[in-house]
Design a protein around this nucleic acid. Structure first.
Lengths: 226, 226
DNA sequence: ACCTGAACACCGTTCAAGT
DNA sequence: ACCTGAACACCGTTCAAGT
């Protein structure tokens, strides 16, 4: 019975609202991933949310891989181009920080980008911008190439902080202190690090500060090799 | 009928061969992932390969997440510690290259490591080694902390080359040349890069060279800030 | 041309039952 | 203590049928 009423809804929607389209599907998929996490993004749930039969999606999307390619392209296209700064460092820095801001809005996106075999059109456009900045600054083709590699995932705004530092992944203060004391026994070098941070755990660092440190270190290194 | 004979086999095995254990399960899982890829690693296939009922695994492993935690720990434990070199740079370099060699043997491992929320015991041991190298070299706690972050996934041997450069992902030469000409129209900076590489495609770079370039750039940068 | 529903071949895991 | 099988609640996708 809910089945039937859903079918009626979808019939109504198809006539009175915008019909199904690839863009509408991709937008809904991004929204679903933002709201419920990427692991909750299934063809079936996505169809349900659009008020449509699961198989209807396949008229606009080849398969789930194609859907993932599509939402990556949508997200990367959100990265706003940076204005030209006084030197290549500041333009490149702003470009990469703009990418980071976009990726922080879609926390699932970094992982999905990594899982794609090839760059999407918007990703190519973004890489082109990065290459243009360094080539215009006079980098040799070879150094520009190295730059693209060493900047790695930073080009797309994520630095691969391997473990979860997020607020809600942190234990409460006394648990963190206990952990730090235990760590100090078996892993003294990590222990002293944990003891020095604000909350006594291994997390608790400022991601923005760490990202900027790494980015500037790389920009400096490239400048010296330039 | 195959069902029944499998049950008999498993009964036989349980008496004549080593019984099921967490270690045996993890070893089989690593082997399965090595041979057929991580996407083929399911609880059901793993049980089948061990000649055992799927649910038997749950006596030694809490759930699939626990299994993934386990195989990450096994792989990272394979990283051999580096001997002390003449300076901290060479010791750290060798430690990170050792990690890279291990991760290259298990191409699926980098992605699984990234998906874990917290470092495994062997990962902590490895990070402890890295921290010990820089602290023994006189790095301040703060700089050592930054170092761990900026080295990022390189500590575990992967540099996050975002897109597939592998041999078999490369198109044939004439197709690559065509792609390069098309790229040159819409993305001139990427086009000139593609034209300059050996096969005319965007891939075709030497991953080892790129990894070493990035690693040395970071080591130099850390040295200057030291 | 687009949408649908039934069906197939998979998943991970709970639970009650066996030894 | 360990193992098992049936069962549940999911997946992605093929295919034949509808409009």
């Amino acid at each position: 019975m809910p089945r039937r009423s859903a079918a009626v809804d979808s019939g109504r929607r198809a006539r009175t609202e915008t019909p199904l389209s690839r863009d509408r599907i991709l937008a809904a998929a991004v929204g679903l991933a933002d709201r419920e996490g990427i692991e909750s993004l299934s063809m079936r749930k996505l169809a349900h949310q659009l008020g449509v039969d699961p198989m209807s999606l396949y008229n606009h999307v080849r398969d789930k891989e194609d859907l993932l390619d599509g939402i990556v392209d949508v997200v990367v296209a959100e990265i706003e181009p940076a204005a030209n700064g006084p030197d290549w460092q500041s333009t490149l820095r702003e470009t990469i920080l703009a990418a980071r801001r976009t990726l922080l809005r879609h926390p699932w996106a970094a992982r999905v980008i990594e899982s794609r075999a090839a760059p999407s059109p918007s990703t190519l456009r973004h890489m082109e911008r990065v290459m243009d900045i360094v080539r215009s600054a006079g980098f040799s083709l070879d150094l520009a190439h190295h730059a693209l590699h060493v900047l790695g995932s930073r080009v797309l705004g994520f630095s691969q902080d391997l473990f979860d530092d997020s607020e809600d992944a942190r234990p409460d203060p006394e648990a963190a202190a206990l952990l730090a004391r235990q760590l100090a026994v078996s892993h003294p070098r990590l222990g002293e690090l944990a003891a020095a941070t604000h909350d006594g755990g291994l997390g608790g660092c400022d991601d923005d500060v760490e990202f900027a440190f790494g980015l500037d270190l790389i920009l400096d290194g490239l400048d010296r090799r330039h």
